[in-house]
Simulated scan of single mutants.
Amino acid sequence: MIPESWIPEILSPQFTWPRPISTVIVEGTPLVPRVPSKLSLRTWGFVHSLLASFSKRYCSLWGVYSTFSCRELLFGLVLKWTERTSIEEVMAMKMARAAGMPVPKVISCGKHGGWVSILMTRLPGTPLLNSDEQFDADAEGPWVHELKQCLHAMRLWRCPTDSKYIGSVIGTAIHSIRVPMHRMGPFTYEAELLKHLLSPASMHSFISTREYEATLLRAKRLNMRPHRITFTHGDLQAHNILVDEGHLSGFLDWESGGWCPEYWEFTTSMRYAKSSWWYQTSYWLGGDQYMPELDSDKALNTLTVDSYVGLW
C-alpha cells in the first residue's frame, strides 16, 4: 500500500472534483447530444479495457476495494462498466449536466460487444440512506430544495420530436428495473405503455378471480386522465443522491433516464415502504400530486411483479 503522504491528492482514488455549483437550473430543453460513431465507441472501448486492467492494479496498491461495475482511477475519474450501462444513459447524463445539474462529466464512452462503458468524473459527497425517520424539509439541508429545483426544471422540458413520445432521449427503449424484460418503449402514446406494462399480468398472486379483476381495474385507471410526457430520471432513489456539506453534490445513475409520463418519476420511487423517510421525501418533492396514479401503480406491481423481479 502506498503512503498517501507521498502522493499528490489528485492521484488518490479518493480525489473528487469540486461540487458543480449552479444557482440556476436551465428550464429550457437542452439539446440532445450527438451519438458517438461506431469507430469512436470501438476505439474508446479498447482504451477503457486497458484502464480497467490498470484500475485493478491501481486499487490494490492503494488498498481500495473496486467493484467490477465501478472501477476507481486516478485524476478523479471512475470507469462504469455494467450490463445495464448504455449509450442512452450517456445522452441523458449529458443533457442533465448541460442544464446545470450536479451530474458526473462524461469523458468518453466505449463499446465492448453488447456492453457499454463510461469514463466519467468522480463527484464529492455521501449517498443518502433511507430510514424509518420522519422527513422534515425545514430540518434538512439545502440539498432537498436543490433537488426539487432539478426535478422542476426537468418536468418543464419537452421532447423535441413528439410531446406524447415515451422512450429514451435518442429514440430507443428505456432501461428500467420495474418493467417486463427491464426495457420499455419506444411508444407513441401512453396507452401503448400501459398495454406493455399489463402484458405479463397473471393471477399467480391472487386467491380468487374476483380479487384479480378488481386489481386489474385499479391498474387500468392509469389511463383515466391524460398525463404530460416529461424528462425523467427513472430511478429516483436515496442512494442515487450525493450530499456534500448539506448541498446536492451528485445526481447519479441515469440508466433509466428519458421521456416518461409525469407520474413515473414519483410512483417508481414511492411504490414501497410508505412509512420510510424516502417515501416522505418523494411525496414532498412532488409525489403528492400523483396519489391516484400511485394506487394504480401498486396494483400494476402486484399483477406483474413476477415478470421482472430477479432478472436484474
Rank of each mutant, 00 (worst) to 15 (best):
F251Q: 09
L198Y: 07
R221F: 12
T209S: 13
A238W: 04
F231E: 01
R228W: 11
E192D: 13
M184T: 10
Y212A: 02
A219E: 02
A191M: 06
R183C: 10
E245Y: 14
P200R: 04
H204Y: 11
L248T: 00
S199Q: 14
T209W: 12
H227F: 11
D253P: 05
G258N: 07
F231A: 02
L236I: 09
D235L: 02
R225I: 14
L194I: 04
S202L: 01
M181T: 13
W254P: 04
T230H: 09
M224Y: 15
G246E: 04
A201R: 13
N240Q: 10
L236E: 06
H239C: 11
L252H: 00
G250H: 00
G246L: 08
P261I: 00
P186I: 03
E213W: 08
S208E: 02
K195V: 12
M224D: 15
H239N: 14
Q237N: 13
R210W: 11
H227Y: 05
L198I: 03
P186L: 06
E213C: 06
E213H: 11
S208W: 06
W259G: 07
M224F: 15
S208A: 07
H196A: 07
S208I: 06
N240M: 01
Y212W: 05
V243S: 04
L252T: 00
R210H: 13
L222E: 04
A214C: 12
H247E: 10
L236T: 08
R183Q: 14
R225D: 10
R183F: 15
L194T: 06
D235N: 11
R228F: 11
T230M: 11
L248V: 09
V243C: 09
A191Q: 14
H247D: 08
P186A: 02
E192S: 08
L222M: 05
T188I: 10
G234R: 04
G250S: 11
S202V: 05
L216E: 08
T230Q: 14
H247Y: 13
R210N: 12
P200A: 02
G250Y: 02
T209A: 13
L198N: 10
E213T: 08
M203I: 12
L248P: 04
E190P: 03
M203D: 14
L252M: 09
I207H: 11
L197F: 04
G185S: 05
L197C: 00
R225Y: 11
I229F: 05
H247F: 15
H204N: 14
A214S: 14
V243R: 01
M224G: 12
L248H: 01
T215N: 08
S199V: 00
E190C: 09
E192W: 00
G258C: 05
T230D: 09
E245Q: 15
